[in-house]
Design a protein around this nucleic acid. Structure first.
Lengths: 144, 144
DNA sequence: TATAATTATTTTGTATACTAATTATAGGGG
DNA sequence: CCCCTATAATTAGTATACAAAATAATTATA
């Protein structure tokens, strides 16, 4: 039962990424990059460390995403003068619109996904999922 | 609401992979490799194509996983004499035990994950998740 | 103040995930 | 038998995900 839950959670996650990727193709940016760009857009001058705390990814992964975002001129990184280890990250002029477009795309992706699922069911689903995730987090911390 | 579902499904999926990876480390095999090995174990002589149909991954990805499994002597690939495009895949002697150990590890990983979630809730959760996945599949097919 | 410990970030190396291109083979007309 | 198309699988290229090591700069401490 739990096993089935895990498998299907994985499957659904994979399908979501596939779906978003297809839709994002035309914007010439990836799903991960866009998620990061959004955070930067909301909090100009944010540091990599702070993004990490918000996003629950890996620092090495984020480093790569950021460098690709910069390479493609979506962001700028400015060395902080007070602490030279830190870089403050800003969204490039003209890239803010991308973040708005994402919302549209996201809506297109997720519309229809709740067909046949009532609001009450969705709420209950989320509630159980929250508990499940909490257990997962505990389990991971427990072991190491 | 749907957005939240998607995010949390992704998060849970990520956590599961992390958890399994940590547990599998000592066996010197990865989660994906083990999933494939299991299928091979259940159906000796299976082909890559057939594995694909069972597992919903990518053929290029599977090709890589198989070659790593072979490199590490977990499987053997034998060219089919009747159709030389095909390779029949067999689990190596002595690797079957790995598949049994997975079950143990899997149980260790997923025990506690349903703490605070009743059987009825789990069932309902799965039911909704199934519908959600079905919608995702439809949506993906719809677009392309 | 020289050294040790910490912190922020990048780099390296391996394993996916996926698209597109390629290779090798099969099988069906003509 | 040769040409054409379909099929099975690999390869190439890009982008994650993550562990571990390396860098570089800051702070704590003897």
């Amino acid at each position: 039962m739990v096993k089935e839950m895990c498998y299907k959670l994985n499957k659904s996650s994979m399908l979501y990424k596939r779906l978003m990727s297809k839709h994002l193709e035309r914007l010439n940016i990836t799903y991960s990059q866009l998620m990061v760009l959004r955070v930067v857009n909301q909090e100009p001058g944010i540091t990599a460390k702070e993004i990490l705390m918000q996003m629950d990814t890996d620092k090495a992964t984020l480093s790569g995403v950021l460098s690709r975002l910069e390479k493609n001129s979506y962001i700028n990184r400015v060395k902080n003068v007070k602490d030279k280890r830190i870089q403050n990250i800003y969204i490039s002029k003209g890239s803010e619109h991308l973040c708005n477009e994402v919302s549209v795309i996201e809506k297109a992706c997720i519309s229809d996904l709740v067909d046949g699922i009532s609001l009450g069911e969705a709420e209950q689903f989320l509630q159980i999922l929250d508990r499940f995730i909490e257990n997962q987090v505990n389990k991971i911390e427990q072991k190491f």
